[in-house]
Design a protein around this nucleic acid. Sequence first.
RNA 1: GGCCCCGUAGCUCAGGGGAUAGAGCAGCAGCCUUCUAAGCUGUUGGUCGCAGGUUCGAAUCCUGCCGGGGUCACCA
Length: 585
Amino acid sequence: MNPFALFADHVRAAVTALAAEIGVSGTLDLSRIAVEPPREEGHGDLAINAAMVLAKDFKAKPRDLAEKIAKKLAEIPDVKKVEVAGPGFINVTLDPAFWLGVLRAVIDAGSEFGRADLGKGEEVNVEFVSANPTGPMHVGHGRGAVFGDALANLLALTGFQVTREYYVNDAGAQVDVLARSAYLRYREALGEKIGAVPEGLYPGDYLVPVGKTVAQHHGKKLLDRPEAEWLPIVRDAAIDAMMEMICDDLASLSIRHDVFFFERSLSSGKDRVAETIETLRRLGHIYEGRLPPPKGAPIEDWEDREQTLFRASAFGDDVDRPLMKSDGSYTYFAADMAYHRDKIERGFTTLIDVWGADHSGYVTRMQAAVAALGGGKVTLDVKLCQLVRLLRAGEPVRMSKRAGEFVTLREVVDEVGPDPVRFMMLFRKNDAQLDFDLAKVIEQSRENPVFYVQYAHARAKSALRNIAEAFPGLDLGPSNLSAASLEQLTDEGELRLVKRLGQWPRLVEAAAIAHEPHRVAFFLHDLASEFHAHWTRGNDLPHLRFIIRDDPALVVARAALVSGLATVLASGLAILGVRAPEEMR
RNA sequence: GGCCCCGUAGCUCAGGGGAUAGAGCAGCAGCCUUCUAAGCUGUUGGUCGCAGGUUCGAAUCCUGCCGGGGUCACCA
């Protein structure tokens, strides 16, 4: 039940009928018609731009056309008032009964209110986190994790078949470094004094337990072997341990993935990377050639050589991209192409990758690869999460993995709790930098918007409890709330809240289409604000309170409103993955 | 130097073709005998970085500058 979509249908029908009556030649582009909640309250319930958008097609002045459309819209039963305003807006005011019907729809649908079928079951793959398995997650990873999870929730709610996926980079030089670092800890576990961890190895003591585990399983067997023999063993143990640790970190934020795709699996058994390159070669997208040296800052060891190149420039990229390193192994990009080809082969038609902003230069080439591999039928949307600046009381916290001194995601979650972390990270657009001030979130948590929204939900629940207590015999079940005499909700604050609830389905759809979960967080903040404001009006105006001693029928109607508010607040918080508490403690 | 993201109130940020540009924090002035004041009300504060262009209409789209951040064959 989306009132705005409903009236968009009405408007399109009215415009089409009008065009037929007048005899407008040519086809009308109805897609630009927008039916929106107006910014100004005095402008009614719906703002319609149809006349301005279609004035040319009708060869009419916007305001004249608006008048004609308005006349047709006035015939719709729920419409109370239609006004033409400004440059040609049609402002529609609906009968309060219509909005109360929306409230009834909220009660009847419960947590299903806002569910949509935009996706029609389309398979969407959301790849997020994909942090290298070389250490604990840091706060920046956490942002991508929370973002991807919320986006997946949002898409699932709007009719998409969502798979949450993690690409594990368990190949390449860095996991060898990990293995060597763990091997050092293994020797340490066997009693050796290792001293300071050499430059170039991971110094973090999270590898100490890995060393101990390897020592337990293999004793001293690995001590005298050449690296080529112990490395794969230690590496696999270390990667397992790192992934376990990362999954724990994610679990602390209630994040779970459906699929963990290991980069190594691309080359174990069949060489999937070679297959991918061959596929593209047959399509004419691969050639052997030379690249011009990079513009700008010269690279010291630049070596002009002939190499295997993907014709990314044919798909909008600036230059073609190498697939083989000088030592004959595949580039990361080549493996990543094979990985995305695998996603396409698994039937996904929409791919979403959530990356850190430091990968921004990589977006176009990956989209080029997907365009080439998907034959134009698969889209890749890359959501870049800008870096998180971690502050403590306004002072930047330096984070350096090399120095082994960085604030891990887990430390932050343990310190402030998962709800503030999730909400704060979603209370910002993904491509905007995020300042995360530990001192603020920890010490002055009242300022944190998450509490504000959670409090609104708790307040609604508390009101329902108090009503039940004040009227022991009163049935507050959904069916009775749905049957309440809602027409008693005549206060403007009450109606404002009901109308805001009516915006929820539209908001959810818009957020899902734009892949922007932050819109949900902002909507919840607005809704909470209106609820708190209305609540406080009861201080001065006791007749607006939810408990009115001698008027159970009115109380049931207001209980319906509060219940609807709690429902939408809970739905929104569920998308964000934030708890909707029954009470604040 | 090329490319990507960002420049909106003192600060942190929404708004991404629509009407008189919003919120939180900070500041100022108020509201607890109450269904939880973890709340609310009022108020101060803006050449939407600059300059052109596109059109009925631009904070929003395009171009060029200026500032901040990121990134720049073969790392992952």
